[in-house]
């Protein structure tokens, strides 16, 4: 659990500020994954984080901001040993029923023309994150994700 102890020698979390523009999401993700503060990341960590970041930011752009491309998004990434804490906040509309979606697996046992073309985002986020916390604070959606990483080489 995060503590109120702010005297640790750990550097501050890496912080990012950007807009809900799908054309920029790839660059934001590349920036986060190459941040020296968060290294070393294994290939597996990188693909996991890339999927999580893309799905969360897409969801904010598409659902919270209803495809507006100028909605502000604040994000932080903080590595604590073998765990990454990612936080996201936006001022878009709240998540349905004030809860983060369950992300149930899709049924693929159906004729081709009935295969799902969406609804994979939250399924992937829940599968790849150890823990998910969502809160609506004032006019903000606040999402915190806890991701297990491969152990750092000693």
């Amino acid at each position: 659990m995060p503590t109120s102890n702010r005297h640790s020698p750990r550097p501050n979390p890496a912080r990012y500020h950007f807009q809900s523009d799908p054309a920029c999401i790839g660059d934001v993700i590349a920036d986060v994954l190459s941040n020296s503060q968060l290294q070393p990341l294994s290939d597996d960590d990188i693909s996991k984080l890339e999927i999580i970041l893309a799905e969360v930011i897409n969801n904010i752009a598409e659902h919270a901001y209803g495809e507006r491309s100028d909605g502000p998004i604040e994000m932080s990434a903080d590595r604590e040993g073998d765990r990454m804490v990612l936080t996201f906040s936006d001022t878009g509309i709240p998540m349905p029923d004030g809860k983060s979606p369950e992300g149930s697996p899709q049924n693929l046992d159906c004729p081709t023309d009935e295969l799902p073309e969406g609804g994979f985002g939250w399924f992937l986020i829940r599968l790849l994150c150890k823990d998910v916390h969502y809160e609506r604070l004032g006019n903000k959606n606040c999402l915190a994700l806890f991701v297990d990483l491969d152990p750092r080489p000693t």
Partner: peptide
């Protein structure tokens, strides 16, 4: 290098 869920949906849609 990367396909997100929108890209995956677009590949499924292409098949459909």
């Amino acid at each position: 290098d990367f396909v997100d869920s929108s890209g995956l949906g677009a590949i499924v849609a292409s098949m459909k």
